[in-house]
Amino acid sequence: MFWLYLTLAALALLAAAVLATRLTFRLEDLSALDRQAHAVRQQAPSPELQRAHELVEQAHAVAKSRSGKAGLAALREHMDALSDDLVLHSARQLQKAPRGEWMIAPGTDTRRRVLYLHGGGWTAGSPRSHRAITDRLSRATRAAVFAVDYRLMPEHRFMDGVKDCREAYCWLLDNGPEGAAAADFMLVAGDSAGGSHTLALLAWLRDSGLRQADGAVAFSPSTDLTLTAPSNRGNIAADRLLGPMFGRLARLPRPLVWWGVLALFRVSPTDPQASPLRGRLAGLPPTLIQASADEMLVDNARRYAARAAAEGSPVTLQLWPGMVHVWQIFAPLLPEADEAFAEVAAFVAQLEAEQT
């Protein structure tokens, strides 16, 4: 009889957990978005990709060398050091409030501005770590690029970083590297976690009635923290950067992941601020998304592009075969990074042509 009572109690607890999960997250099934086909570039990866793989392996080794806070500190230091030997073509200018730095390519019109939101899983990365991107982005867009040093977890809440991104955008509307001056052109861009911040910011601007960005660029954005897209598990082995870091997490039962995200982020993984794919995507500006066909997040990008198109927002999705997650950060090492920034330049030129 004891075992019967124990079994019944366990079943009751399981049923309560299932009910609590359903009531808390109310997950919308987005699998229908996976039916839309998206073309992948027909080209073999360049030989230089091997060197990028070696750099990725170095980052993994650093992350594994220590645990806890010490490991995170070591990873942050390693990421920042990636830019130390770069030959920058842009002038660099620090900004105290909001905190961040400008990248200003020669010949830039500083009334043309880009807000850059760096990646790093919301726990690492900085304007310094992403100078390879912001330098090239300033040249590609002929704009002054401001990389905001938004607050990171776990020292701060996820929403603290979101607020920093919002405030930086509003500040950029009226301020440039030389001081107060209204912006003539505004672009928002970001990679990975910062790509998700980018897409969420567009929706917030629409809902807040503020001046919308003229366009947006997202490199390998996460878009959805529920980890329900097929590639989140299917591309673990192929993803040389995210697979070793998040592969085990992606294999966990998804309800455990959702509760974990809620505990760490203090927002639900279905909240559009954390998962912009799960918000309303109508009325957004033209957006360019670039992703690797072999990364864990590629279906997140595919789903976002498909849903945005269905709701009437123009999204261009470009997929490269065999690339690492956010390969644009390996400029000028990778020829594919050069190709990516050339596509960004063409996208911005198209935006301007449509505005005239």
Rank of each mutant, 00 (worst) to 15 (best):
V56D: 00
E57M: 10
A63E: 07
S67N: 02
G68P: 12
G71Q: 06
L72H: 06
R76L: 06
R76D: 12
L82M: 11
L82K: 05
Q95Y: 04
A97P: 03
A97W: 03
A97I: 10
A97D: 15
R99H: 14
E101S: 05
E101V: 02
W102S: 07
I104K: 12
A105R: 01
T108Y: 12
T108P: 10
T110N: 08
R111W: 00
R111N: 12
R112F: 02
R113M: 05
L117V: 02
H118Y: 12
H118S: 06
H118L: 10
G120M: 01
W122G: 03
W122V: 01
T123N: 13
R128L: 14
R131S: 09
R131C: 04
T134R: 00
S138A: 09
R142W: 07
A143I: 05
A144G: 15
A144K: 07
A144I: 13
V145Y: 00
A147F: 00
V148Y: 07
L152C: 04
P154F: 09
F158I: 03
M159Q: 02
V162Q: 01
K163P: 05
D164F: 07
C165I: 06
R166Q: 15
E167H: 10
E167R: 13
C170R: 10
C170I: 08
W171K: 13
G176F: 12
G179T: 11
G179F: 11
A180N: 04
A181R: 15
A183H: 09
A183R: 09
